[in-house]
Amino acid sequence: MIVDDSAVARAALSRMVAESGRYRVAGMCASASEALVLLRQTSVELLLLDIEMPRTSGLAALPDLLRAARGAKVLIVSGSAADGAAHAVEALALGAADTLVKPGAATMGTRFADTLLAKLDGLTEAEAIAVPVSRAWTRPAYPFDVVAIGASTGGIHALTSVLRAIPETMQRPIVVTQHLPSSFSTFFADQITTASGRVCTVASECTRLLPGQIVVAPGDAHVVARSLGDGTAALRLSREPATTGNLPAVDPMFASLAAIYRERLLAVVLSGMGRDGLDGARQVRASGGTVVVQDRASSVVWGMPGAVAGEGLAHAVLSPDQIAGFITANGRP
C-alpha cells in the first residue's frame, strides 16, 4: 500500500513497484485516514508512508497504521527522512521498519527505484533458520556488569521498548551499536535519553563506562573497549574494516567487551538484517558471557538474531519485554 498526498509520487512509486514483477500494489491513498479505512478491507505486507501530509502527518498516524496493518512492515518514503532528520529517528522509534529519502519528482528515476526495491527485498526476505535452542534458560545464572546491545533494521523500536521497561535501579552501563548513518547519531541518542530516562551519549575517544549511563556508537566508527586495569573499561573508536562491512559493527564491540568482562558481560542481539554480531557472540560465549537474542515473532527482520540463534550461541530467545525483564533481574531467570 502506498500512502502519499502527492498524486505524482503515488503514480511513480506504484509504477516502480509494479514493474519490478515482485510486488503488487494493493492500494493507494492520499491521506492516513484513507489508509486506515482501506486497511480494514485489505491485507498488506508492506506500507510505503510519506511523513509530510495534510491534516494528519505520517508520524502522527504511524501507531494507528501499524495496528491497522496487522503486522505489515512500514517503510517511510519521505523527503523529511533525509540524513540527520529527527523525523526519521522518531519514525524508527515508533515502529517503522526503515526509512528512505524521497527525491523530487524530477529525479525519481532508475537509481531511486533500485534503492526502493532493495529496501523492500530486504524487508521481505524469508529467514529459514533452524534454531537449536529452546526459550528456556540453558546455563547457570551469572550476574553481569555491562550490557552490550547490537541492532539494525527494526532495532530502534525494539531497543526503545527494552530500555523503557528497565527501572532506574538497574545501574549497569549499557553500550549500543545500532546501524545508522553518522548524521543520525545525535538524534538517536536524544531519542534514547527520552525513552529510557537515562543519560545517553554518543561515544567519543576514551569514553569511560559509568553506572546508569547508555553509550551509543557514532555512525562512522566502531566502539572498542579497552581495559582500565581495575576491572572496568573505556571505549575507543575504531574504523578498521569489519568482516561484515558494517560501520559501526556489532562484532568488535562484543569481542572487545568480552575480553575484559568475560562472564560479567551480557550481549543482546535485536532485530536486523545480515549477520553482524555472530562472530562477536561466539567470542562472548567463549569468554563465559551471556548471549540473548530477540525472538522471530517480534523482530522486523530476524537476520542478526536468527544467525546467532541458528548457530546455537543464544542462551535464550526472548521478546523485548522479556529481555528487559532479564536485564532488570541482572541475569537471573
Rank of each mutant, 00 (worst) to 15 (best):
A309I: 08
S319L: 01
T99H: 03
G197Y: 03
V224D: 01
A106Q: 13
A85D: 09
M53W: 09
G310H: 08
A97L: 01
V216Q: 07
A128G: 08
S204I: 14
L46T: 05
M1R: 00
L210R: 15
R226H: 15
V3N: 02
P305S: 01
V301A: 04
Y261D: 02
L94N: 00
Q171T: 15
H157D: 07
R135C: 13
K119P: 03
L237R: 10
S152H: 06
H157Y: 13
S20T: 04
A32Y: 01
F187G: 14
L257C: 08
D83S: 12
R15Y: 07
Q41M: 11
L48N: 00
V216C: 15
Q283Y: 12
T107W: 11
I323L: 03
E45R: 12
E311C: 10
G155P: 07
A165E: 12
S319D: 06
Q283T: 13
R208G: 11
S204F: 09
A281V: 03
A69R: 04
A32S: 07
G325L: 02
A221Y: 08
Y142F: 12
G288A: 07
R15F: 09
L163P: 03
G79A: 02
L180K: 12
M1K: 00
A151H: 06
H157M: 05
P252N: 06
R40I: 08
S319H: 04
S152V: 12
L36A: 03
A82T: 09
T107Y: 12
A242S: 15
L13P: 07
M28E: 15
L265S: 08
L36D: 00
I129R: 15
V25Q: 01
Q294K: 10
F326M: 01
G277L: 08
A148C: 08
L117R: 05
A7H: 14
V199S: 12
A126G: 07
P241G: 01
R264A: 11
G274K: 06
R226D: 14
S182Y: 13
G84I: 06
P181K: 02
L49H: 03
I260E: 04
A233M: 00
P103I: 09
A203Y: 07
R172T: 15
A189R: 08
S161W: 09
R275H: 15
D114M: 11
P305N: 00
A9Q: 05
C200L: 00
E19T: 14
I76W: 03
